[in-house]
Design a protein around this nucleic acid. Structure first.
Length: 462
RNA sequence: GGCGUGAUGGCCGAGUGGUUAGGCACGGGUCUGCAAAACCUGUUACAGCGGUUCAAUUCCGCUUCACGCCUCCA
């Protein structure tokens, strides 16, 4: 039984799909105005673990992740770069997908871009007009009157009486009935340049929230199972989506809501002014691999804030090496026999504990604890029966469909280094220690480490 | 002001009303020509103050500290 924490009820609930065995998932995606930062990927990593666990549990999944390619930031960026909006955002769409590959994040089934779904958004706004849940202001914009949607605030648990005009909104700037009303459609202003669409209300562009309501409906239906995003989206974004969708369709929007906490860098909120703002690319340039970053991002429970530090990134490298060594040893014992036998009891226990932890609202730390306990028990079980080793190896691969970092990276060892390692083994046989040390140093200079094992020398990247 | 989250050993980080989480680092050992790596092994912590209880790190209350959101930031 897979239990998840539903933000709507603020409690753990069993995930039961509305239809059959099929989980329909909507996840808020990136605004493609820049290279995505590691905080963004913390969210997508959580969603990746979620979708992988949903599949491990035997559910079919359909995930939609939107690409916000029209908003204030993308328009500003395209103006500053002198490129058309479409060309400007394409760069960041492309790099987003490259990043997903580097982090081994499973692709969603659909990645709709906002600019490809304008007609759907317009249709939805028209429906809101019919229901009296939209009004046009003098500046050509269309707003949603939150006072007319009785349940407004149910997700964020807002105290409606206490919702006074906030200090951050200059009321005079807007021609709205209520300062808290949000835009469905933004009337054209000169700064938008060529970014403009026709609508029944005149020229303009969509508000931010409407794209998710329109695109989720297009791909998942009016009601779907699960909606995810960062905690900061609870209000206003998701609250507004609920108002739009449930207001227009008169039915439940999403059955469950899950939100991930933010990421901090070296104990501080990540921000450009603190100088601790990192894109994925910048971390890769420092020499860390996507796999190491994946381990770092996935390792903290999604509802706890994750403190991203280079110290822990280094610690993760050692932890991954421990896993790799175990897996390599497993392959040694399997030998040429491919047939898998019975799983030893310690491995059964490893999987059982792992699954119990993940079933508990994706308790990844508990799952990793089970994994490392399994490695410990497995190391003690060597030398292992080949069929048993093959069974454990298969389990390893099964768990990797969830974790996505167990399969060790394939490293091509340069052939001359293999020759040197063999020559050193020969020198050792002849007790020519000077030559043996010379070869070891030469290999080290090339960036590789020779590890002597009972089955001969092995080469590992330093 | 409103809503909400958290405080665990050197660091990170699970969990539990009484029984070893785990990872990293560090110490010891096995192995090794010396190393390295690997493996084994050791270190017993739960912010403070009250309360409930035979028993609290775990439940309740208060305090202190930290953090998030409160109109377009994952």
């Amino acid at each position: 039984m897979f239990k998840i924490y539903n933000t709507m009820s603020r409690s753990l609930e069993e995930l039961i799909p509305l239809e059959d065995n099929h989980v329909r998932l909507y996840t808020c995606g990136p605004t493609v105005y820049n290279y995505a930062h590691i905080g963004n990927y913390r969210a997508y990593m959580f969603e990746d673990l979620l979708r992988r666990w949903i599949q491990y549990k035997g559910f079919k999944i359909t995930q939609v992740q939107n690409l916000t390619d029209v908003d204030d930031k993308t328009i500003r960026g395209s103006r500053e770069s002198g490129k058309a909006l479409r060309d400007y955002t394409q760069t960041y769409k492309d790099t987003f997908f490259e990043d997903l590959k580097v982090l081994n994040i499973e692709p969603a089934e659909h990645y709709p871009a906002a600019t490809d779904c304008i007609p759907e958004m317009i249709a939805l706004i028209e429906k809101l007009f019919e229901k009296g849940l939209a009004y046009k202001s003098d500046d050509g914009s269309v707003y949603f009157p939150i006072d007319k949607f009785a349940e407004y605030g149910k997700l964020a648990r807002l105290d409606r009486a206490g919702m006074r005009a906030g200090a951050r909104v200059d009321q005079d700037e807007y021609d709205k009935d209520n300062a808290a009303d949000f835009a469905l459609w933004k009337g054209y202003v000169e700064e938008d340049g060529e970014v403009v669409w026709d609508s029944p209300w005149g020229k303009g562009r969509p508000g931010w929230h409407i794209e998710c309501s329109a695109m989720s409906q297009k791909y998942l239906g009016k009601t779907f199972d699960l909606h995810c995003g960062g905690v900061d989206n609870i209000f206003p974004h998701h609250e507004d989506e609920i108002a739009q969708s449930e207001g227009a369709n008169g039915c439940l929007y999403s059955k469950y809501w899950m939100h991930n906490a933010h990421l901090q860098v070296e104990g501080k909120k990540m921000s450009k002014s603190e100088g601790n703002f990192f894109t994925l690319r910048e971390i890769l340039e420092k020499g860390y691999t996507g796999r190491e970053i994946r381990y770092e991002l996935i390792g903290t429970h999604y509802r706890k804030s994750l403190n991203f530090t280079f110290d822990s990134l280094n610690a993760n490298r050692a932890a991954l090496a421990r896993l790799d060594d175990f897996y390599a040893k497993l392959q040694e014992y399997i030998g040429t026999e491919a047939e898998a036998g019975e799983l030893p009891s310690w491995a059964v226990e490893m999987e059982t504990r792992f699954a119990a932890a993940l079933d508990d609202d994706l308790n990844i730390a508990g799952g990793l604890g089970a994994l490392f306990d399994g490695v410990h028990a497995g190391n003690k079980a060597f030398p292992m029966d080949p069929k048993e080793a093959a069974a454990v190896s298969n389990l390893w691969k099964k768990l990797d469909t969830v974790l996505g970092f167990l399969e060790p990276p394939k490293e091509e060892v340069p052939s001359e280094l293999i020759e040197m390692a063999e020559a050193r083994a020969e020198a050792k046989k002849n007790k020519d220690w000077a030559e043996a040390d010379r070869l070891r140093n030469a290999v080290a200079a090339a960036g590789w480490i020779i590890q002597d094992t009972p089955s001969g020398p092995k080469l590992k990247k330093a």
